[in-house]
């Protein structure tokens, strides 16, 4: 455990002193701020049935596509490319500790970035100062549900990034692979479900179950369902487990 903590601290330190991390953060916050303003602008044009926060979380996939590959593509692929993974393995740390430290470092940073977006509704309500708007924009149920979804789904997305990084020595290939898998999981599954699926009729239930937007729907309304939590926890554990096995076999 002490090895894991030590490795995690190291990974976090590396993340926080790397300029690329700040570039990624600025791009992420600019993009999310732009999306938030667009949503608010749309709400000024015509009334909506849902709260702005719900629409904000429904677009979670846009930053996921670039932020997750950027955070994870380097993790194992770079260590293998420059040969430090083998050196690390000569110390009394296990592959499990290495993979999990890299995973948790990226995951904590991912959550931190998303937590920064919580300041958007806070800044808006502080600037405008309308009590009616405060109630709607800072609705605790939708915020808590939405950020819970981000935190839970982030487990799977980051583990996919680590998995991609464990497969190759090239950062670029790892990043592209991660993007492709995320694209298939987030947009491909619902697209497959909504397109003509005559020959896929037998797996409609499975497609529904793997549809991330179905999981999001409950969370963004402020409804917590243990099925979604089990789904993300279990599949992220599976992907991380496979990553450990792959990393172990390639050292």
């Amino acid at each position: 455990m002490s090895h894991f903590i030590c490795l995690l601290k190291h990974e976090l330190r590396v993340l926080f002193i790397a300029p690329s991390t700040y570039v990624t953060s600025v791009i992420f916050l600019l993009l999310m701020g732009f999306i938030y303003i667009l949503i608010l602008a749309d709400f000024t044009l015509h009334p909506h049935n849902n709260l702005p926060t719900e629409y904000f979380f429904q677009l979670y996939w846009i930053p996921v596509f670039f932020i997750v590959p950027l955070l994870t593509m380097k993790s194992i692929a770079e260590e293998r490319r420059i040969g430090t993974l083998e050196t690390l393995m000569t110390t009394p740390v296990t592959v499990l500790e290495i993979v999990f430290s890299k995973f948790f470092a990226a995951y904590l940073f991912y959550c931190l970035l998303w937590m920064l977006t919580l300041t958007f509704p806070l800044l808006v309500t502080l600037t405008i100062g309308s009590s009616a708007m405060t109630v709607k924009l800072l609705d605790p149920a939708t915020l808590l549900g939405g950020y819970t979804f981000i935190a839970i789904s982030g487990l799977l997305f980051i583990s996919i990034g680590i998995f991609s990084s464990s497969l190759t020595r090239s950062q670029l290939v790892a990043g592209m692979l991660c993007f492709s898998i995320l694209f298939i999981i987030i947009l491909g599954v619902p697209a497959l479900r909504t397109q003509s699926i005559g020959w896929l009729e037998w797996m409609v239930g499975a497609l529904e179950y793997f549809n991330n937007f179905n999981h999001l729907e409950d969370f963004s309304r402020g409804v917590i369902d243990t099925r979604h939590i089990v789904f993300y926890f279990s599949y992220s554990t599976l992907v991380l487990g496979i990553s450990v096995l792959i990393t172990e076999s390639k050292v």
Partner: peptide
């Protein structure tokens, strides 16, 4: 005005970087 206020956050992160 809101757009400028929201810009302050990435701005602060950029300064830190």
């Amino acid at each position: 005005q809101l757009s400028l206020v929201l810009l302050s956050l990435p701005g602060a992160v950029a300064i830190c970087g």
